[in-house]
Design a protein around this nucleic acid. Structure first.
Lengths: 218, 218
DNA sequence: AAAAAGGTGTTACCAACGTAACACACGGAG
DNA sequence: CTCCGTGTGTTACGTTGGTAACACCTTTTT
């Protein structure tokens, strides 16, 4: 990737956008901003590694996953261009990545040193605000994730999804904009189990459904 | 609670500690810092409510819980004196509490208005640093929680706990400092199920155990 | 010392759900 | 048009783990 393409990319990220070109260039020159490239399927951070910089994805795709006892790998979260990594951990007293972070595609990442970041934060209220917003949004997603993993029965997960969609589509008749297969993946269950549970819910007169829509009856 | 007891409590919290008395008193006077008391078992925030202030627990106990389809209530997280609430959400573009927050004991809470907080943050680097540390620690705990809820089998949860304890006690012979009942609660399963799984793991020659210790064999 | 309370281990029973295998429908490629 | 890939619905089977009931033990209360 050409050097100035990178510069444009860097400048266009949400985090950096509120900085002056001078700030950006100074930080690049003295090594506080650094771009690292990863090949497809490289580990970026191991579980337990210390987190000492903020990372911003310039291009590519990054996933957080875990491997269970039987060796099955399973993806918890995906990050794309403009997403940040480590922002929520960075200033913790135990700044350890809690899970393995790796690139699923060729990925370019901008790294910002912790202390340099701190300097920028307290010298630039707009930058501070942006940063706080970003990590807050991040934490919100985390919270949502927990809420999601806490649903124990498939039916609960389905109802959760349906209620949300029903609100956002403002109708009890919910148009599925994704395939059932994708829905199953989204709520983290087998497709067949989803299928079975939907059938049961129809028996219980909770819903009606066809290939691309579901109607909430209660 | 007497007014000056409160002031001492406020002054002694991690967040506020790095502020000058003058800052504290000014903010109290103009209403940016406000103390609210809750009786035992009151709802502090409903699921979905907008979060517009940072809250610091001065005394009491606060829990985050959820109610499942069958009406069972189940606690996700507990907070005590000096813990903060909402810190990770506050500056999000969708600052909604993702779950119900309530007091489990009589509780006093210091509320700090978002904009007042922001003022303090960008005017006081030590305060900023402290705040970032706090919310980072918080996010770390969140991440850990996810990691925990993601363990699907009881055996995985147990092994997770044992490996952690084994490291921190620096021995394969792990002294249980809590009862098995408490351990079961900690990893979120029935006591009997824990008991059964421990027995199975012994059969599988993974562990040995007695009433107050467990030995990891692999 | 007797009684009450709470932790522990065990087991029969059952609901939830992942696995695997099969049938069918649809849309694009040859 | 046929063939293949992919999404979909169904079902038999097995595993995991929650429920409930009971026995045993230790500690605390009276």
């Amino acid at each position: 990737m050409a050097r100035n393409t990178n510069l444009n990319l860097i400048r266009s990220t949400t985090v950096v956008k509120s900085l002056s070109d001078k700030d950006i260039l100074t930080n690049i020159k003295n090594g506080n901003f650094k771009v690292t490239s990863y090949k497809k399927n490289s580990v970026i951070h191991f579980d337990g590694e210390t987190c000492s910089k903020l990372e911003i994805i310039l291009s590519g795709k990054v996933v957080v996953d875990r491997i269970d006892e039987s060796g099955d790998l399973f993806t918890i979260s995906e990050f794309y261009q403009d997403d940040i990594l480590g922002g929520n951990l960075l200033f913790s007293k135990n700044p350890y990545y809690p899970m393995t972070v790796s690139s699923q595609l060729p990925t370019d990442i901008l790294e910002i040193d912790r202390e340099a970041l701190f300097e920028l934060l307290y010298n630039n209220p707009i930058f501070l605000r942006t940063y706080l917003e970003l990590i807050s949004d991040h934490a919100f997603i985390l919270g949502d994730k927990i809420k999601h993993y806490i649903n124990k029965t498939i039916r609960e997960s389905i109802m959760n999804y349906l209620r949300y969609e029903s609100k956002s589509q403002n109708s009890n008749h919910i148009k599925l904009n994704i395939t059932k297969k994708a829905l199953a993946e989204k709520i983290g269950v087998q497709r067949t189990s989803l299928s079975r549970e939907l059938a049961k819910m129809r028996e219980d007169r909770l819903i009606l459904f066809d290939t691309d829509s579901i109607t909430l009856l209660k």
